[in-house]
Design a protein around this nucleic acid. Structure first.
Lengths: 190, 190
DNA sequence: CCTTTTTATCAACACGCGTTGACTAAATCC
DNA sequence: GGATTTAGTCAACGCGTGTTGATAAAAAGG
């Protein structure tokens, strides 16, 4: 009896595994789930398309592996209350521009892929909402978190996905200040 | 010599043409460009897939036809200066929820389709930026328009595409008030 | 060094896609 | 009402997709 097996954890296989993950992350973040083919990923990793399946089982499974964002947001209760907005925007920009983040991957795909959208909702509920909650009254917590998401995801959309020229050209410090102020009001409820 | 021709403008053909456009608009807005197939459109319009091509030449051409947003934004110079933000948000929500709008179609597709993204940039430059410009100093006009786009598109993304529960559940008047305030500050530069 | 295990390649599969051309049915015209 | 133009149907094409199984190459073990 023969069965298709995923490679073991030898140094050799670990290198190709990493190469596939890296290529997949870059392409998924650039072209979205549907716009990225297994053959594209294989070409970028300089290996055979069959290896992608062999290592990760399926394109779906690879996507799920690569689109696991750990936002690593700061504990806002430790932050100066008046700096919550700017802190949030700053960390959000870091997350977006880092190599690691699964967030770009997800946002690219969420617009036309319901699974990715559901994942994004989960992340929001699990990581953003609880963070915002203690910054204001408990009754308004969901609304405040929703408003914050509105602004932060809009920033990511226009700057990194649509690449609207004025938003792309804004220096980081200006974004942190201007959008930070809006986020501050949303998060604290004034 | 025979050549494939698009149907003439008889009443009969006009009805099917409208049916195709309506089905296309609904599906493109729901699943994006890549997620929508010609066969899907045909099925919803209850006609043969070949008719879609026969009437519009190609899937691309049909998309271009259907994704032509005329925002019809109000002339902000005629509006009470303190109400610019709320007016903008209100019109934006109307546009989004109306049957006509090509905006949902575009946003769904722009994340994974560069052509759609370029179109959205054009619309922004042609329709939003000039509108915002006179609300503040000329030097900061692009920046102010960019910030407004950040917030308005983020609202659309979270409410209509990602469907984040707290944002979906917010009543219209609350959105107009809260987000209107942020847009107001962005548009006028305080 | 031969054997066994593990990694990588290759060709092919079944499927869904946009699109086409040959054909039929229906409406229109004189 | 027969001829001609128009709308609609059907089966198929070429292509790119994710995925698979047989097979070769390379590494590891004794």
């Amino acid at each position: 009896m023969s069965m298709a097996r995923s490679p073991r954890s030898t140094p050799k296989s670990l290198r190709t595994r990493k190469a596939i993950e890296e290529a997949a992350r870059a392409l998924f973040a650039q072209d979205g789930y549907d716009g990225t083919t297994v053959r594209d990923i294989a070409a970028r990793a300089a290996i055979d398309p069959a290896m992608v399946i062999r290592y990760f089982g399926s394109k779906d499974a690879l996507f799920a592996r690569v689109a696991e964002p750990r936002l690593g947001l700061p504990d806002l209760t430790q932050v100066d209350r008046a700096a919550i907005g700017e802190t949030l925007v700053g960390h959000f920009l870091d997350q977006w521009e880092g190599k690691q983040g699964g967030l770009p991957v997800l946002l690219r795909s969420a617009a036309s892929n319901e699974d990715a959208a559901a994942r994004l909702r989960d992340i929001f509920a699990a990581q953003v909402a609880p963070l915002i909650a203690p910054a204001g009254s408990a009754a308004t917590a969901p609304r405040r978190a929703g408003l914050v998401a509105t602004q932060l995801l809009g920033l990511a959309l226009t700057r990194y996905v649509l690449k609207l020229p004025p938003v792309v050209e804004m220096p980081r410090e200006l974004i942190v200040r201007e959008i930070g102020a809006a986020v501050q009001r949303y998060a604290t409820g004034q």
